[in-house]
């Protein structure tokens, strides 16, 4: 498998990353159009920043825990069914993007392969998030309530999963 494809798939293969992308896709999809695009852009900018920091060989960070906490919060906000203020959503998306980037160190020996993987990760995560946002905004615009309720149920599942994992990490002394 090429480095680009490995990078593309990485956000989908790591459960915590996939969970965060789903949570933020659902959350951003609830926003009105200009803010929706801004939140998406903030996530991508944060992601690029995080990946750039990785490329500059930043040290150990609590990015994994921050990402899970952000995903849990996003899931909770989706479950509650009341979208947060747009600016808060944008900031949260930027933090999540940054955390996802910082938590995606490529497993590669050469710099060229590592860089290609990082580019792949940026593309994969951005594309996956955009797809979920598009799906969530489409579902949110429908008159039929069931899919919207389904999204809220999904949000509650994400929040519950994230909370359990954070507690487990805390109990094992691995949190932050």
């Amino acid at each position: 498998m090429s480095a680009l494809v490995r990078g593309l798939l990485q956000p989908l293969m790591l459960p915590a990353h996939a969970l965060a992308l789903l949570a933020f896709g659902l959350l951003i999809g609830q926003q009105r159009v200009p803010w929706r695009l801004l939140a998406l852009a903030a996530f991508v900018a944060g992601l690029a920043g995080g990946l750039a920091a990785i490329a500059l060989a930043v040290g150990q960070t609590p990015a994994a825990d921050v990402l899970l906490a952000a995903a849990g919060l996003a899931g909770l906000l989706v479950a509650i069914g009341r979208p947060p203020p747009a600016l808060a959503c944008v900031l949260l998306a930027a933090v999540a993007g940054m955390a996802l980037g910082l938590d995606s160190p490529p497993e590669a020996i050469s710099i060229a392969v590592a860089t290609t993987m990082l580019i792949g990760t940026a593309l994969g995560a951005s594309l996956a998030l955009a797809l979920v946002v598009a799906g969530a905004s489409y579902v949110g615009a429908q008159k039929w309530a069931a899919p919207r309720i389904g999204m809220r149920v999904l949000g509650s599942w994400i929040a519950a999963s994230a909370l359990l994992v954070l507690a487990l990490r805390f109990a094992r002394g691995q949190l932050f």
């Binding site: 479950a79 309720i149 809220r152 149920v153 519950a160 999963s161 909370l163 359990l164």
Partner: peptide
């Protein structure tokens, strides 16, 4: 019909945290 299945996992996770923390 949808509120109870949303409430349950959220509160269950709270109980799970208590269990994990001993």
């Amino acid at each position: 019909i949808w509120l109870l299945p949303i409430v349950f996992p959220l509160v269950m996770a709270g109980g799970g945290v208590l269990g994990i923390l001993g």
